[in-house]
Amino acid sequence: MSTKTLVRNEQDEEIAPRTTPTDRRDGVVGVGRPGFGWAAPAAVFFGLFALVPLILVAVLSFATWNGLSDPEFAGLDNWKKLFDDPVLIQSLWLSVLLTVLGVAVQTPLSILLGVWAAGHQRNRAILSAIYFVPLLLSVAAVSVLWRAVLDPNFGVPAQASWLFGDGNLFGHQASAIGVLVFVSTWQFTPLHTLIYQGAARAVPQVLYQAAQIDGAGTVRQFFHITLPQLRNSIITSMILMVVGGLTTFDTVLILTQGGPGTDTTISAYYMYQKAFKSFDYGTASAVGLLLVLVATVISLVMVRLSGYDKMRSTMEGL
């Protein structure tokens, strides 16, 4: 079949589609855009489990409800209370702080590990397989484990007092935050390492070969070829970290329970306390909605600033 006939046939179909239902090319036209029906399962799930709860939460945030009697409309009371609440303001800052620290610690670590693991040497393959293990464990299990390892009397701090002092890691704000950042780093760096490993392997070898001919060493190659080539992966990984950081909950629940005092009560945990400890679903809904707003704004800003929405190719000119 020549190109010419194909073109003519398509034109024919545009004028009079489905004249011959058995014609093979009838299907070819449909490939252009799948019907809306295909989106239905995802749309229904998203609607039921994301949009509808979001709307209900928004409604509840203007009501007082303890789960027993019917919700009572309370106007802006919950919201007014919220902005006078020092714990809430602090919790937002803590969420942001934990997120920023998480990104700042995990990104360089996972880029270096990922680029290193991208090599095809056998020892690297084995080590990266081992290093992947923490990701397979549940967050709860990991938190319980570290809580035991960091016990001041029977854990590591008891044996290394030169580093940990009296071992009161969960009794001070700075050290408690440090523990939270450390444990999430321990658990989630492997995921990001994996992202970078894949991305680094996808960097065309010709670039390195050309750089070598020009006399660039390993360090220069890393900064001038690898890093720029990883740009889209860095943004992907950072967005994952930010989302993960803002919604951190299980580590806080198990490791610090928001303490000492309210020193590690991040927003997601504060919402949980309000809803399921204090049975104040109105305030909890307001906190939840606020968290949604903050997270949306942050991810919009990130996408804008990074140019991710333009999806520029790293393969230009190749």
Binding site: R147, A148, L150, D151, P152, N153, F154, D166, G167, N168, L169, F170, G171, G259, P260
Partner: peptide
């Protein structure tokens, strides 16, 4: 109570 009581728990046998 010593100094590190806030890092000790009853529930994990500490």
């Amino acid at each position: 109570f010593g100094t590190n009581f806030d890092s000790v728990k009853f529930t994990d046998q500490g």
